[in-house]
């Protein structure tokens, strides 16, 4: 494991009172990788990040290793990590430069050296102009950049970010998401960030670990995660896939509204899902699957059509914006290439 920047071995966290926020889990983050911890709220992703940081102690038996060295017993101030908090937690009694230089100041670095490093890091984060500002004079996006600069100024071994974009409004979030991805790569540092937003995780991370109920259920590259989800829950959570139900017979999936091609071989208890982009509306004469439109929502670049009666549950299909699909109409459906997701039937924890 000495090549890994971060390695977790059997790390779990039970809170006083008995709630187990993180179940025993293993995770390896190679040097220089940007890992996203993705999951719904309450899945334990922030607790896992705090365990890596040293803000929480794992239950006995768990080990946290940085570069192969056991740091389990080290508190956060001795772990040499850089941390970006959800609220950014900038010190209101210091200027931007004071904030960025703080980690160096408490380490006893000489003034001139601090000033030079602060200037360098602020330039790296495109925030040089903010150096003498007070924290309350910064916009949300500026705060995020200063928090990032403060965390990397001490040249940490790993950078940890807790929901770094959630404090921003939606319009800003998308722009800063790409900016953050660029900055993290510019730092060339091992980074772990927590998010509940799958688009954020897929856009920023080299690899995404999906968490559910205290467990890491799948850790993969964004493409692999999207193309081959480990189970139905991951497929639903990442990309909003819907269960089709049905039974397989003769290379076809038989559904209430017809059939879809499903060439085997399949595991005996496989499950079939489809994302909104996996199906397309088709002429009823060519379609093998038919359903009734219950709602059609115009989203500008596409028409989101909800369809009943085709599969066992409701289906959502992203059609071309000019498609004809009025509520009540019966429409034909066609599978797009690679649209069908097949996952093994797995027991789902509550």
């Amino acid at each position: 494991m000495s090549g890994a920047a971060i390695a977790l071995e059997g790390v779990a966290r039970t809170f006083p009172g008995g709630a187990q926020a993180v179940r025993p889990c293993a995770l390896v983050v190679p040097q220089g990788e940007i890992l996203g911890l993705l999951g719904p709220s309450g899945c334990g992703k922030t607790t896992l990040l705090r365990l890596i940081a040293g803000l929480e102690r794992p239950d006995p038996g768990g080990r946290v290793l940085f570069d192969g060295r056991d740091v389990t017993r080290l508190p956060v101030e001795a772990r040499h990590v850089g941390m970006v908090f959800q609220s950014y937690a900038l010190f209101p009694n210091m200027t931007v430069a004071g904030n960025v230089g703080y980690g160096l100041r408490v380490r006893g670095v000489r003034r001139a050296e601090i000033a030079a490093r602060v200037e360098e890091v602020l330039a790296l984060c495109d925030a040089s102009a903010l150096a003498s500002r007070r924290v309350d004079q910064l916009s949300g996006g500026q705060r995020q950049r200063v928090a990032l600069a403060r965390a990397v100024a001490v040249r940490p071994r790993v950078l940890l970010l807790d929901e770094p974009l959630s404090a921003l409004d939606a319009a800003l979030r998308e722009r800063l998401r790409d900016e953050l991805a660029t900055l993290l790569r510019r730092f060339a540092i091992t980074a772990v960030f927590v998010t509940h937003d799958q688009a954020e995780a897929l856009a920023i991370a080299d690899r995404v670990a999906v968490m559910r109920a205290g467990r890491i259920v799948q850790a993969d590259t964004p493409r692999a995660l999207y193309a081959a989800p480990a189970d139905a829950w991951v497929a639903r959570f990442v990309g909003g896939a819907a269960d089709l139900g049905g039974v397989v017979s003769d290379g076809s999936l038989l559904l209430p509204g017809g059939r879809l091609p499903a060439p085997g071989p399949h595991a005996p208890r496989a499950r079939f899902l489809v994302r909104p982009g996996g199906l397309d509306l088709a002429d009823r004469s060519e379609a093998t699957l038919v359903g009734a439109v219950t709602r059609a929502t115009f989203l500008g670049d596409r028409l989101r059509v909800e369809i009943d009666g085709a599969a066992e549950g409701a289906l959502v299909v992203d059609a071309a914006p000019d498609a004809a699909a009025a509520p009540g109409a019966r429409v034909g459906l066609r599978l797009r290439p690679g649209g069908l997701i097949v996952v093994p039937e797995a027991e789902e924890a509550p």
Binding site: V76, H80, F85, S87, A89, V106, V154
Partner: peptide, 15 residues
């Protein structure tokens, strides 16, 4: 007081 402020200081190495 925001507890994250103290955690931020600690993460930067402050005793």
């Amino acid at each position: 007081l925001d507890p994250a402020l103290e955690e931020a200081a600690r993460s930067l190495g402050a005793g």
